[in-house]
Amino acid sequence: MLEGKVKWFNSEKGFGFIEVEGQDDVFVHFSAIQGEGFKTLEEGQAVSFEIVEGNRGPQAANVTKEA
C-alpha cells in the first residue's frame, strides 16, 4: 500500500488525483474508494491505496481514508 494526499477531487464528476511524494500524481475514480455511503475525498486528505494499470495508465485502487 502507498500513502498520499488528495490533490483535488471533483465529487460531481467522481474523480480526482492523489499526490505521492517522489512520484507522478495518481488518478482516482470514486468507485475505488472503500467504505459505505457517498464516496468522495477532500483536498489534502491523507489516503492509502494501491496502484493498478487502468485503460489510460496507472490509477488508484482500494483507496482508504486515513484517520
Rank of each mutant, 00 (worst) to 15 (best):
F30C: 04
G22P: 03
G57K: 06
A61N: 09
F30W: 13
G16K: 00
Q34W: 10
K7N: 03
E21W: 14
F17L: 07
S31C: 04
V6P: 00
N55G: 12
F38I: 09
F15S: 03
G4M: 01
E50D: 11
E12F: 14
P58E: 05
F15L: 07
K13V: 07
E19R: 15
H29N: 04
V52N: 05
L41E: 01
N55D: 13
L2A: 10
G54A: 11
G4Y: 02
I51D: 01
Q34V: 15
W8M: 05
N62I: 07
S31T: 14
F27Q: 02
D25M: 08
E21T: 15
F49A: 02
V28C: 05
E3F: 15
K13I: 08
E50K: 10
V28M: 05
I51C: 05
G35S: 09
V20S: 08
S11I: 13
I51W: 06
K65Q: 11
Q59N: 06
I18M: 03
Q23I: 11
D24T: 10
L2W: 13
A67K: 14
Q34D: 12
E3M: 15
V28F: 12
S48H: 14
F9K: 02
F9Y: 09
E3Y: 15
D25Q: 06
L2N: 09
E66N: 15
Q45W: 14
H29I: 05
K5W: 07
E66S: 14
E43I: 14
S11W: 12
L41A: 04
K7S: 05
E12Y: 15
P58A: 12
N62C: 04
Q23F: 11
E66R: 14
R56P: 09
A61P: 01
E50P: 01
E3N: 15
E53G: 10
L2F: 13
E19S: 14
Q59S: 07
F49V: 03
L41H: 01
G14R: 04
K13R: 13
A32M: 07
A32K: 06
N10D: 09
A32V: 07
Q23C: 05
Q45C: 05
E42W: 13
K65E: 07
N10W: 09
E43N: 13
K5M: 05
W8A: 03
D24Y: 12
A46C: 05
S31P: 04
E42Y: 13
F49W: 02
G16N: 00
H29V: 03
V47M: 02
V47Y: 02
F27V: 02
H29R: 04
T64K: 13
P58M: 09
L2D: 04
A67W: 12
N55K: 14
G54V: 07
G16W: 02
A46D: 08
V26H: 02
V6I: 10
S48P: 00
P58W: 12
E21V: 13
E19F: 13
A46E: 08
G14M: 03
F15T: 03
P58T: 10
F17P: 00
I51M: 10
K13Y: 08
G57W: 05
Q34P: 07
G22L: 06
V52E: 08
N10K: 09
F30G: 03
A67D: 09
E12Q: 14
P58H: 09
T64P: 02
E53D: 14
F30K: 07
K13C: 05
E50Q: 06
G37M: 06
V28I: 10
K65W: 10
T64V: 13
D25G: 04
I18T: 00
D25I: 06
V26S: 03
H29S: 04
N10Q: 08
F30H: 08
S31E: 04
E19C: 06
R56L: 15
E42L: 12
S31V: 04
E53A: 10
L41P: 02
Q59E: 11
G44I: 02
N55S: 14
E43W: 14
F27Y: 08
M1T: 13
H29K: 03
E50W: 11
N10R: 10
V63I: 07
F30S: 06
A60L: 02
E3L: 14
F49T: 02
Q45R: 07
